[in-house]
Design a protein around this nucleic acid. Structure first.
Lengths: 160, 160
DNA sequence: GTCATTGCAAAGGATTTGCAGTTCC
DNA sequence: GGAACTGCAAATCCTTTGCAATGAC
């Protein structure tokens, strides 16, 4: 989506974000692609126009935009591959507070289909449903967020 | 799930995997938890019983178990946080070949509900559906796999 | 005996931190 | 003026690689 400088300015203001050239460039780059880039890819992209920009700024900014509700972090599970020996079809519920992952067995969810258009264009092999929410213990604490993007360091050690 | 040494042996054999103590320990640790641990968490867990085990072995073994179909890699998207400026409710289709992510707008998918039991126990804030498959270009090549676990290095640079 | 598997050591690379200087409001 | 933001440099830590030794079949 093409955005004017004023569009961006207005969106930032509406969320109480300071407007800086770097920040606008990062948001613009993300808004104009549908490729779901990583933070690093955005860093590289924006650096073409702002060679001085630092990784720090990109990571910090993405965290700020996310917390402001201007962008989505598509996958919270980027803290490393996660494994599961349960081979029955099932889905997951992730607590956004403590990041615990619960198994959801539900036959109905396993019968979902992608829209017809995609079924023609793609060979669909499966799907997965991920519910998000808060467990009882985390209900009051709200989302676990830092100013930065990732949660790797603060994720609880999985008990295996 | 509790597994006897023989169970494990049988499962490995059935898939043509060599049986080694380390390998069995890794699989056992994963089968006995529902916590969806990371590779690193499993490394730490198994190391308690096999202090000599190397990270290499754990990563290598997880890749082998996954390729053999004995375990699932729950989240392929562990190659870093990915972002999206599209704030309308939507879902995703991931090509398992080239890792491209496509947006799927479908109102029906957005109305899914978690099973009642979970709705009581959790405060559900949303959900996400992720379809997996192969785009036309990748249809013949099959899954992109290495012996190892991650795909970080080989993921295509997102165009932003 | 052969080949997959393992351990060790070291490299790689994305992400994070501290901090000082700068910019926006 | 003050708080938020930025850049720089360095550290961190998970993950990967090369290679030689080992062990399963």
């Amino acid at each position: 989506m093409k955005l004017s400088q004023d569009d961006i300015r207005a969106r930032f203001k509406a969320r109480g974000l300071k407007v800086t050239p770097q920040r606008a460039a990062i948001y613009r780059a993300l808004a104009e692609t549908t490729s779901h880039p990583t933070a690093d890819a955005l860093y590289r992209a924006v650096r073409r126009r702002y060679p001085m920009i630092s990784p720090n700024t990109v990571y910090y900014t993405l965290g700020a935009l996310r917390d402001a509700g201007l962008i989505h972090e598509v996958n919270y599970w980027h803290d490393g591959a996660r494994f599961d020996a349960n081979m029955q079809p099932h889905h997951h519920l992730v607590c956004l507070g403590c990041r615990t992952i619960h198994d959801v067995m539900d036959a109905g969810l396993s019968r979902l289909q992608a829209p017809a258009g995609f079924r023609r264009e793609f060979q669909i092999t499966g799907h997965r449903v991920e519910f998000h929410g808060y467990c009882e213990a985390c209900r009051e604490t709200g989302p676990r967020r830092t100013a930065r993007v990732t949660t790797r360091r603060s994720a609880p050690a999985a008990r295996a």
